[in-house]
Amino acid sequence: MPVRRGRAVVAAAAFVLAAGTLAACGDEPEVTVDVEVTGEAGVVPELTYPQPLEVDEAFAEVVWEGEGPEVTDGEPILLHYYAEDASDGSVVGETFSGVPKAFVMSRDSVGSDIYDALQGTTVGSRVLNVVPAGDQPTTTVAVFDVLPTRASGEAVEPREGLPVVELAADGEPLVTVPEAEPPSDLVVQPLIRGTGAQVTAGQVITVQYTGLTWSDGEVFDSSWAPDELPWPFPIGVGSVVAAWDQGLVEQTVGSQVLLVVPPGLGYGGDDSELVGETQVFVVDILAASGGPTS
């Protein structure tokens, strides 16, 4: 699957936002800025401040605190962001009109200013970050929404005879395939039912996933692997895995879905080592962007 392509896109986004360095906190006096942030979660925030806004030190403030787990150093973090040039309010960059971006929670990945602004925050939080001119030409005002990196919702009891899925502490699915003949038809089994909007054909879904073969239980691809991140996929319009189009459309954001995929609907072409294999996927739907509902 194409999870190992396109990392330069993520790195470029981090570079654009990471210019400037956050001053060390220590015992230095508290810094305040005159910036008002309004708007609901999931939509572009509205920023109100005197222009041009000039600050001498970086400033970060939690606009609201999320109810999810605390972000963890070295682990993936999924963000929607919106940033303006504080001299005139022009947009520097944003993801709300597209798909959220995944990074590693580290200074090297997101930059020191963003890392310090987000350290200690929780999933679901919205964070304001103002960075003074430095390596960048002007002050930047940015807002970050911290999105989930694993499914969350109501657990669903799966039917008998399917692979058993247990979750590691970080949410990674550990899958045990039964010693039995695989089903001949596509099986779609929600394991966690999220409370978000339904996925519609034509959207891009951001997911965590694991794919393995029924015959031996070996993982052939996973976004949970080291150095991998949640990844966006177009859905309902000819996915790289046909079964995803059939099984994930109309599922809800936040859900975890088990797919048992017969040959012909899975990943891999005619010359793939996976040809003829029944494949098992566990997919966490983290976000859905674009499409007819935008």
Rank of each mutant, 00 (worst) to 15 (best):
T149R: 08
S125E: 05
G276S: 09
P182S: 13
P232L: 10
V16P: 04
V207R: 13
A201E: 12
D170T: 06
G217W: 00
L258Y: 10
T195A: 15
T176G: 08
L191M: 04
Q51I: 13
V110Q: 03
L128H: 05
A8L: 12
S223N: 10
S106N: 07
S289I: 11
I285F: 08
L212Q: 01
V164I: 11
G89M: 08
Q136W: 00
L162Q: 08
S112T: 13
Q51F: 09
T206A: 03
V261D: 09
D271C: 09
V207T: 15
R5D: 14
A117K: 02
G276M: 06
A58N: 00
D216K: 00
A169R: 09
T195C: 09
E166G: 14
T138N: 13
S87V: 14
G202S: 01
I235P: 08
V9S: 07
P182R: 08
L17P: 02
V143Y: 05
A155F: 01
G39F: 03
Q246S: 13
V131N: 04
R4P: 02
E84C: 13
S223L: 10
P50S: 10
G247E: 07
P76I: 03
G276N: 09
G74K: 08
D221T: 11
P178I: 06
V104D: 07
V141E: 00
K101T: 15
V99R: 11
T38K: 07
V141P: 00
A60G: 14
V219P: 04
D27V: 12
I235Y: 03
V249E: 07
G66A: 06
E228V: 04
L162V: 10
I77L: 07
L167H: 06
V199P: 07
P292G: 12
L229S: 08
R4H: 14
G66V: 02
R5S: 15
G254I: 03
L229G: 05
K101I: 15
Q189M: 12
T121C: 13
L22G: 10
D270R: 10
A288I: 03
G120Q: 09
V249P: 09
V219Q: 01
Q51K: 15
V253G: 07
V280D: 00
H80T: 07
E28A: 13
V187R: 04
D245C: 10
T38F: 01
G202I: 06
A83I: 01
A60C: 09
A23R: 13
S97R: 12
Q208R: 14
A102T: 05
E84D: 14
L229T: 07
T122M: 08
L174I: 14
V199A: 02
V165S: 07
A12P: 08
L47Q: 02
K101P: 02
L274R: 08
